[in-house]
Computed example of a mutant assay.
Amino acid sequence: MFLLILSVLHTVLAVLGVIFNSILIFLTAFKSPKSIGTFSILLTVRGCTDALACIFDIFSQSRPIPSGLTLGIASTGICKYLNAWSCFLGYSLQLHFHCFSFHLLILCFLFRYYVLLERYPKSNQLIFLMCLFYFPSFFQALFVLIDNNKPEDVRQLVQIHHPEYELKDVIVNGHVDLRDFPCLFSYLLMLIPIIPGCVLIHVLRRKIHCKLRNAILRPEVREKHRQLTFALTVQTLIPVAFVLSTAAFLLGQLRIIESPILESSTLLFAVIVPVINPILAIALIRPYRETIMRKIGLDPKEWQFMSKDCSVAPGDSRSSMFGSFDNSSVASVTSVNSKFTITGEMNPFD
């Protein structure tokens, strides 16, 4: 019964993720303020990545089953009406897009830190960076697909380790031996960066906060950055879901805890991320938030007193979570005796 509840929750979250990210993609394409600059490209790519992760989650509805050196993948999604290969493909692509989404989150923090030091990067520079960040995810998916073993062999080994599991009505794929190089390399490529990536995100947040604290800025600009720091702090909580997903997988694979509930939770934790990402983006970027409020019949002016403290840039309809300086207020900041001072006005969108 509890597994059924987890399965329903899993499906509901994935469907919500597709809806929310589709809304975000529309907003970034048609409602992005000019002050966001090239960051709207990053928002769009993240929205597409998270939406695809949710789509393939619905398609495969996979549950990893650690079984000694064997890793079984039990799938109960739409793919079971096609064939075993489609289920394994859906599972592989789901992991691929979750992995790329995490790398894009790191890039978001690097982007903001770079903006504080220099100017907004040009579109071709940002696209080049996203391509570099995509390569680990690409190789992860490629090597997972290479190591696809015969479903009947995997099913037999899983049943030997878990004779109490009822697997008659599910498709079982996976890896016979996790020590095989393609399989081992792909999962290490996905799991190892999680902790260093989380540490890097927290370090970047602290550096951004420190740089803003030591900067000499106009009061309205400082207020925008104060709220930006709040937005970054909220975003640093997102990778916790990836950490929980990794912990659930390792606990099962190391045979510390063997439980169908834990196995179902592995990808359940991961699918929470693509649901939270678009909600935060829409809530913290004023033009996006106001567009949604108007669509549902709310007057943004009537709710201004509530949104003032949570908006990244209150009072500026063109400001954004990662573009809090508009064309008239961006300034070059340089270091002078461990302090920062405004040296002149410039437009980062040239």
Results as ranks from 00 to 15, higher is better:
residue 150 K to G: 01
residue 125 Q to I: 05
residue 140 Q to D: 02
residue 141 A to Y: 05
residue 148 N to V: 08
residue 141 A to Q: 04
residue 125 Q to W: 11
residue 154 V to C: 12
residue 152 E to R: 06
residue 153 D to M: 12
residue 126 L to C: 03
residue 158 V to T: 13
residue 146 I to K: 07
residue 138 F to S: 07
residue 147 D to P: 01
residue 134 Y to N: 00
residue 129 L to P: 01
residue 145 L to K: 08
residue 151 P to V: 06
residue 133 F to G: 05
residue 143 F to S: 00
residue 160 I to M: 12
residue 123 S to I: 10
residue 128 F to K: 13
residue 141 A to R: 02
residue 141 A to S: 14
residue 133 F to K: 06
residue 151 P to K: 13
residue 157 L to N: 03
residue 152 E to L: 06
residue 127 I to A: 11
residue 150 K to V: 04
residue 150 K to H: 07
residue 128 F to P: 01
residue 137 S to F: 02
residue 142 L to Q: 01
residue 143 F to P: 03
residue 140 Q to P: 00
residue 154 V to T: 13
residue 131 C to L: 15
residue 132 L to R: 02
residue 129 L to R: 11
residue 122 K to H: 09
residue 121 P to T: 12
residue 134 Y to H: 07
residue 143 F to M: 14
residue 135 F to H: 05
residue 149 N to E: 12
residue 130 M to K: 03
residue 147 D to C: 10
residue 125 Q to G: 14
residue 150 K to Y: 06
residue 134 Y to P: 01
residue 145 L to D: 03
residue 129 L to D: 05
residue 136 P to V: 00
residue 129 L to H: 01
residue 136 P to K: 02
residue 152 E to T: 13
residue 135 F to L: 04
residue 157 L to C: 04
residue 145 L to C: 12
residue 142 L to Y: 10
residue 140 Q to K: 00
residue 124 N to I: 13
residue 130 M to F: 06
residue 132 L to H: 02
residue 129 L to E: 04
residue 123 S to L: 14
residue 132 L to D: 00
residue 145 L to G: 12
residue 146 I to P: 00
residue 138 F to M: 08
residue 138 F to V: 05
residue 141 A to T: 13
residue 151 P to N: 10
residue 130 M to D: 02
residue 122 K to T: 14
residue 141 A to L: 10
residue 137 S to M: 01
residue 143 F to H: 06
residue 131 C to K: 04
residue 128 F to S: 14
residue 126 L to R: 07
residue 157 L to P: 00
residue 147 D to W: 04
residue 155 R to K: 14
residue 139 F to M: 07
residue 139 F to D: 08
residue 143 F to A: 09
residue 141 A to I: 08
residue 141 A to N: 02
residue 138 F to R: 02
residue 148 N to T: 11
residue 160 I to C: 04
residue 123 S to K: 15
residue 127 I to F: 10
residue 124 N to H: 11
residue 145 L to R: 09
residue 135 F to I: 11
residue 140 Q to R: 03
residue 130 M to E: 05
residue 141 A to E: 03
residue 135 F to W: 04
